[in-house]
C-alpha cells in the first residue's frame, strides 16, 4: 500500500448524503475479473446528461473528494475504493462514513477524514467556492488540511491508523506479533468450547 503523508490538489465537492457503493462502483461494470475501475467509477451518474463533478476537467485526477453523510454505505465491495483510487482519489473528507468503507479505504492507503461537526459546513463551503480553482493540501503528519485562502482545519485520526498510513504498512505484520496469544486463545477454546474450533463434518 502507498504511503500517505502529504497530498495536494483539487478538492471535488460531491455533497450528497448516503452515497452507496452501488453508485460508486455499479456491479454491472464489474463483469471482468480485472475491470476498468476508471470506467466503473460512478458510471451511471456519469452516463446521465449532467455535469458530474469528477468529469469536469479541473477535477480530473483530483486527489480529494468532499462528501456528505454516510459515504460508502451499502455493499461491502472494496472495488468502490479501488474505483475512487483509479481516478486518483487519496483522501475523502465526509460528514460520516460507513464503517466497512472507511476500513477498506484505510487498508488501501486512502485517508478518510471526518472533521469536527462545527467545521464541516465551512469546509464544504470553501470547497464549493474554490471549485477546483486552487489546490488544497492534506497533511497527515500535522493532521491538518490547508485550504486555498489560508484557512486551516485540524482533524483527528486514531494513532494506529495514522501510523499505518504514514508508513504504508498493513496490519498483518503487526498482528503476527500476537501469534502466540492467538495460538493460546485457540488452545483455550479447544478445552472450553471445542465446537468453536471444530466444524461439523459435511453431509456430502
Amino acid at each position: 500500500m502507498d504511503k500517505f503523508q502529504i497530498v495536494r490538489g483539487p478538492a471535488a465537492p460531491l455533497l450528497v448524503d448516503d452515497v452507496d457503493t452501488d453508485q460508486i462502483a455499479p456491479v454491472q461494470y464489474m463483469r471482468a475479473l480485472e475491470p476498468d475501475y476508471r470506467v466503473a467509477l460512478f458510471a451511471r451518474w456519469r452516463a446521465a446528461p449532467q455535469d458530474f463533478v469528477l468529469d469536469k476537467p479541473r477535477f480530473s485526477g483530483a486527489p480529494i473528494l468532499v462528501a456528505g453523510r454516510n459515504f460508502g454505505c451499502g455493499s461491502a465491495r472494496e472495488v468502490a475504493v479501488w474505483a475512487l483510487m483509479a481516478h486518483g482519489v487519496r483522501c475523502i473528507v465526509a460528514r460520516s462514513f460507513s464503517d466497512v468503507f472507511r476500513e477498506s479505504a484505510l487498508k488501501n492507503g486512502v485517508l478518510p477524514v471526518q472533521l469536527d461537526a462545527a467545521d464541516q459546513g465551512s469546509f464544504e463551503a470553501i470547497a464549493t467556492d474554490v471549485d477546483g480553482a486552487a489546490p488544497f493540501e492534506v497533511d497527515l503528519v500535522k493532521q491538518i488540511i490547508q485550504c486555498p485562502g489560508g484557512r486551516v482545519y485540524a482533524f483527528s485520526i486514531a494513532p494506529h491508523e495514522r501510523a499505518a498510513l504514514l508508513q504504508g504498512l498493513d496490519d498483518v505484520a503487526l498482528t503476527m506479533a500476537y501469534a502466540a496469544r492467538i495460538a493460546a486463545w485457540e488452545e483455550g477454546a479447544l478445552q472450553e468450547q471445542p465446537w468453536l474450533q471444530r466444524v461439523p463434518p459435511r453431509k456430502g
Partner: peptide
C-alpha cells in the same frame, strides 16, 4: 461484514 483487504488479514491471522 468486511472488505477484501480486511478478509486477507482474517485469513492470514
Amino acid at each position: 461484514g468486511c472488505g477484501s483487504s480486511e478478509l486477507e488479514h482474517v485469513l492470514a491471522t
